[in-house]
Computed example of a mutant assay.
Amino acid sequence: MPRYFFHLCDGTEEIDEQGHELPDDDAARLEAIRYGGGLIQDDPALLLTDQNLRINVTDEERKLRFAIVMLAVDAGWQPQQGGPG
């Protein structure tokens, strides 16, 4: 089974040196979502500190396979006026 590494980027970088053996990219993607969800559940302020959380998932050759990005958007955001229509 391939080994995937889950690197946390939240204003700092935490490099995963061990990784996890998983059957494929789909399983790794689900694991990355679970990992991010667990981080937010344990410390909800983590997302608010830097307003984003990114988990870079790499393969055994340390090549980026995909990233999971969680964002906090300020409530003051407004859609742009004059869009297509």
Rank of each mutant, 00 (worst) to 15 (best):
Gly38Thr: 06
Cys9Tyr: 11
Leu53Asn: 03
Leu71Ala: 07
Gln80Gly: 06
Ala67Cys: 12
Gln80Ala: 15
Leu22Phe: 05
Gln41Thr: 15
Glu13Cys: 09
Glu17Phe: 09
Asp16Met: 10
Leu30Tyr: 10
Pro44Gln: 13
Glu21Lys: 13
Gln41Asp: 15
Gly11Val: 10
His20Ser: 08
Asp74Met: 07
Gln78Asn: 06
Thr12Met: 09
Glu13Phe: 11
Ile55Leu: 13
Gly37Arg: 06
His20Gly: 04
Ala28Phe: 05
Gly85Val: 14
Ala67Met: 13
Tyr4Pro: 00
Val69Glu: 09
Gln81Gly: 02
Gly76Leu: 07
Gly19Gln: 07
Leu30Arg: 13
Gly37Ile: 01
Ala28Asn: 04
Gly19Lys: 06
Phe6Thr: 04
Val57Met: 08
Gln18Leu: 14
Ala75Met: 06
Arg29Asp: 01
Ala28Thr: 06
Asp74Arg: 11
Ala45Asn: 14
His20Thr: 03
Glu14Asn: 12
Gln80Val: 14
Asp10Ile: 05
Gly82Met: 13
Glu31His: 15
Asn56Val: 12
Gly83Ile: 07
Asp59Asn: 15
Met70Ser: 04
Ile33Ser: 03
Ile33Tyr: 09
Phe66Tyr: 14
Pro44Leu: 09
Val69Gly: 01
Glu31Thr: 12
Asp10Lys: 05
Arg3Gly: 02
Ala75Trp: 00
Ala45Trp: 01
Arg62Asp: 13
Glu61Gly: 05
Asp43Phe: 01
Leu30Ile: 05
Gln41Arg: 14
Leu8Pro: 00
Pro23Gln: 07
Gln81Lys: 14
Glu17Arg: 13
Phe5Lys: 03
Ala32Gln: 06
Gln80Met: 13
Arg34Lys: 10
Phe66Cys: 04
Asp16Leu: 03
Pro79Ile: 11
Gly76Pro: 00
Ile33Met: 13
Arg54Gly: 00
Asp42Cys: 01
His7Trp: 02
Thr49Gly: 03
Leu53Arg: 02
Gln41Ser: 14
Leu46Tyr: 05
Asp50Glu: 14
His20Pro: 00
Met70Ile: 11
Val57Ala: 09
Gly82Gln: 12
Asp43Gln: 13
Arg54Asp: 03
Ile33Thr: 11
Asp26Leu: 12
Gly36Trp: 01
Arg62Thr: 08
Ile40Ala: 04
Leu71Ser: 12
Leu48Val: 09
Leu71Cys: 09
Glu13Tyr: 11
Asn52Leu: 07
Gln78Ala: 05
Leu46Lys: 10
Leu64Val: 15
Gly85Ile: 10
Glu31Val: 02
Trp77Arg: 05
